[in-house]
């Protein structure tokens, strides 16, 4: 199995020490060996379930939350906004 722990950690925004990386690499190898026990079958074609149609929501406005209760759980707040470290604009 070729698993680039560093790259995956980066994608998942996780950080590991070199020791942890080794530990995870080993554990992941076992787990992947387990999950590779899938039957041989043709997995082409899209993943879609036409027998399970969705009920749409009507386009109506409902408002029942105040800004204060919505940002009450935020670690850092300023001027009614949630604060993060300066970002390079994208």
């Amino acid at each position: 199995m070729d698993m680039d722990i560093k790259r995956l950690a980066k994608l998942a925004r996780l950080k590991f020490t070199p020791e942890e990386e080794e530990k995870y690499a080993a554990q992941m190898a076992n787990i992947v060996a387990m999950v590779e026990k899938l039957p041989d079958l043709d997995a082409s074609g899209p993943l879609i379930d036409p027998d399970n149609p969705m009920e749409f929501r009507k386009d109506e406005v409902q408002r029942n939350y105040s800004r204060n209760e919505l940002i009450a759980n935020a670690p850092e707040v300023q001027a009614g906004c949630i604060v993060v470290p300066k970002t390079v604009a994208e």
Partner: peptide, 11 residues
């Protein structure tokens, strides 16, 4: 571990 596995199988 599970986040890593999930990230792997979707990558």
């Amino acid at each position: 571990r599970r986040i890593m596995l999930g990230t792997y199988v979707l990558s």
